[in-house]
Design a protein around this nucleic acid. Sequence first.
RNA 1: GAAGGUAUAGCUCAGUUGGUAGAGCGUCUGCUUGACGUGCAGAAGGUCAUAGGUUCGAGUCCUAUUAUCUUCACCA
Length: 877
Amino acid sequence: MKKELPKNYNPADFEDRIYKDWCDKKYFAPDPDKKKPAFSIVIPPPNVTGQLHMGHALDETLQDILVRTKRMQGFSTLWVPGTDHAGIATQIKVEEQLRVNEGLTRYDLGREKFLERVWDWKNQYGSRIISQLKKLGSSCDWDHERFTMDEGCSRAVREVFVNLYEKGLIYRGYRIINWCPNCRTALSDAEVEYAEQEGAFWHIRYPVKGMEGTYVTIATTRPETLLGDTAVAVNPNDERYRDLVGKTLILPLVGREIPVIADEYVESDFGTGCVKITPAHDPNDFEVGKRHNLPVIKMLNDDATINAEYGGKYAGMDRYAARKAMVADLEAQGYLAKVEKYSHNVGTCYRCKTTVEPLTSDQWFVKMEPLAKPALEAVTSGEIRFEPERFAKTYINWMENCHDWCISRQLWWGHRIPAFYCDACGKMTVSKTDIELCPDCGKPVRQESDVLDTWFSSALWPFSTMGWPEKTADLSRYFPTSTLVTGYDIIFFWVARMIFSSLEHTGKKPFSTVFIHGLVRDAQGRKMSKSLGNGIDPLKVIDEYGADALRFALATGNAPGNDMRFSDEKIESARNFANKLWNASRFVLMNLTDDDKAELPALEKLAIEDKWILSRFNQLVKTVTENMEHYELGVALGEIYSFTWDSFCDWYIEMAKSRIFDAESEGAKVARSVLCYVLTGILKLLHPFMPFITEEIYGALPHDDESIMISKYPTYDEKLVFTAEEEDVERIIGCITAIRARRAEMNVAPSKKAKLFVVTKYEETFKATAKILEKLASASEVVLTDSYDADDAISIATDAGNFFIPMRDVVDFDKERARLSAELEKTEIEIGRLSVKLDNPGFLAKAPAPVVEAERQKLVKYNETKAALVAAIAKLK
RNA sequence: GAAGGUAUAGCUCAGUUGGUAGAGCGUCUGCUUGACGUGCAGAAGGUCAUAGGUUCGAGUCCUAUUAUCUUCACCA
C-alpha cells in the first residue's frame, strides 16, 4: 500500500503529471448529482492578448482555493473559464504586428480582411493565457470555456442591446465625450485616468470690440482651443466685469467676434475670473454653451491635429505644435499677458496613456439612472455582499454619481452595434438579427460601423456564459453564481456593470458575494508594470519554486482587500514550508508498515501526546473551516502552517519517535496510525491552497480515495475532545522531572526530547484543571498565579525548560554606518525639497503664513537632524 | 473638494467576537541529534503614530490630530 517519495522535493517532477491526470479523470467537471448543493464561479476573463501576470495568479489562486474547498465539502462546483476579446488592446496588438511584418495599416486591408487577421491571431495566441492558467493548477471546467465573442456571448450582447434600446435605455446622441487621439476612439468616463502633469497657465488678452486698448484677460491651460472659442464667461456677481457682459470680443489670431456672457459656473477668484468658453472641447463649457445657445466649434481632427475648417494657418498641425506656434504668435502680436507654471490633472487613456481630448461627437450611450437604482439597492439591502465590506462603499459611491455610459467605440474588433441605417428613407433599425433591407422602404441598409465597449459584453459574463437568453440547465442550476473574485481596481469597470445588467435582464443578482482582493506590488511597494520593468513573471516563479509555493505566497500574509508586496523572501518561505511538509511525510512513510492505515486506533490506546495532537488537529479543522467561510483565507492558511510546522513536525513527530523506533511495540502501531491520520488531515486542509504537493503525498500514503481532490474535507469530530486524566498528569510531571535532572547533570541546553513537557499545552478542549496546574507547579517549583488558564501551563513549562544565554554586546560598525548614511540621504532629499518649496514665489504668495512658517520649522529641524547624523557617522570612523 | 485605506519587532506584514502582543525574513548563540541546514534548539528586539473617551480591562470600539497611500470629482 505505501510508497516512497524521492529524497528531494522537486515540484517540477510531478506538477504537470498530476494536472494532466486530473484533467483526464474529469475531476474539474461539476458533479451531476442533483442532490448536491451548487457552487459556481465565473472567472474574470483575462484578455486574449494577455500574458499571465501576478494579478491573474492571485485572482486565480483565490478562486481555486474556494472552488477546491467547496468541491471537497460536497458541493457540485462549476468554475467557468474564458477570455475577453479586449477590443482596443487586441486591435492595437494586431495592428502593430501588421505594421512591423508587412508595413500595412488596418485601412490598407479593410474591415473584413483585418478582422480575419484578428481572428487568426486569436486562434493562434488566444489559448496562451489559458495554458498558463493551467500551470497554476486552476481547477476550471475546461469543457465550459467561453469567449466574449463566441456565438453564445454575441447573441446575449445583441439581445441585451436591443432590449435596452427598446426600453429607451440606449440612445444615440451628440455629446461631449473623452476621445483618445492615439486609439482614435471614444472612451467611457471609467476608461480615463487622471495624471498630474506639469503645464502652464497662459494669460491671453482678448480685445474688446470698439474699445481700443481695452482687453479681457483669460487664463487657459490649452491655448490652442482658442480656435474653438464661442464666448468668454464671467461670474454674474463679479463687480470687475459687470460692465463687460454683453460686449463683443475679437478673438486674437482669428478675428472672429464672440460675446461676453455671465454664468454662475465661473468662479471669480480663480485665474482671472474670465473663462474662455469652448463648447466643443470641454465638458463644462459644453454645458455653458447649451445654457446660452452658443455655437459649437470643433477645431480638432480625430488624431488631435487642427482641422482645416477652423484651423486657419494652423490647420494640419498637431495640437502641441499648434499650441507652441499659437503662443509664439500671441506673444508676437502682444496678446500674451503672462505665463504661469501650473501643474494640473490631465485625463489619459487607460490603455495607451495618451492625453485624451474632450470633444463633441455622435456616440451611443446607456442611460444609467434607471439601471443604477436597483443595482444600488441590491448592495445596500445586503442581497449582494462585498467582502471585505468596505468595498461596498466604493461601489455605492460610484453608482450614485455615475453619468451615462458611452458604449460606442470607433474600432473594428468587437461586437458591432446592431443598428442599421437606411440612406434612402433615413430610418434607423435596431435588430437582433442582421438585416439587409430597410423594413420601411425596402432599400439596402448599412450597419453602424462602431463596435461596443468591451465591458458591455463582460457585463453579461455571469449569465451569457450559462447560455442566457436560452433557459438552459446550467442557467437554472448555477446562476446566480456564488462568489465573484476580483481586484478592487475593476469594481467600476466590471462589477458594477455586471450587477445592473444582470438585474435588468435576468431579474436576478449575478452573484451573492463579491470577494475583493488588492494588487500585487513589487518588493518596494510599486505597482508592477511593463514600463517600469518590475513585473515578476509567475511562470518563472513556478519554474523555480513550483506552483504550490507561488500559491502559498499569494494566499498568505496580507489582510483581505489590502495590497500585497511580492518578494523573494515570501516565495522562499513558502517553498521551505512545502519542503518541510515533504520531509515530514517522508519520515512518516519510511516508518509505516504495509498494513498501516490512516485510521484512528481505539481511543483508549492513545497516549497523552496522541490525544494532544488529535485534539489540536480537531480544533484546527474548526478554525480553518470557519475562516474559509468568512473569506479569511490567509488566516486559515496561517493556522494550517503553524499547526503543521510547530505542532505536528516539531512536537508530535519528535514525541512519537520514542515509540516508533521500537517498531514492533503496540505503542509504535498507535503512533503510526495517529501520524498517518493527522498527516492525511493536514493534506486535505491544505489541498485547496497547495494542490500538487498534497496530491503527490496523498497518493504515497495509505488512502481510500483515488485522489485527494475527490476526498472528503475534514469535519469537526466530537470524539476527539479529550479530558486530561490523572495518569497523564503523572506522566507530564515525570517528564519534567527527568528533563530537569538531565539538564542539571549535563549542564547543556535541552535537546528536542526536552520538549515533552509541552504536552501541557492544553487547548480549551483539554479542560485543564486547577489540580493539574497545581501539581505542575509543585513539580517545577513555580508559583502559580490565581488564574487557571491553559496558557499558564505553557509559561510554567517554558520557564522550567529554558536556559538564558547572555548576549554579547556587538555592534556592526559597517552596518550602522550604512544605516546612518541612508538616513542622511533621506534627510538631504527632504532638505532639498523644502528649500525648493520655500524658494517658490507661488507657494509663498498663496500659502497661509502659518503653513509657510511650519515648513520653515521643518527645514530647521531637518538641518539639525542632518548635523546630528553627520556627527554620528564621524564618530563611527 | 469627497470618500476610503494604512500607521504594530531592524524589514515585510498578520492579529477573526475587547482579556498577558505574533509570523516570515534579518540579527546573535549553540547544534552535521536516526525526515528536513530549504533544518533543529535558544536569544535579543515593540510605551501597537499622537491625544482624549467608553470599559474592571483597548493593538482591537468611539472622537480628534498628524503622517502616508489610493480612488472618485475637479478651476478654465
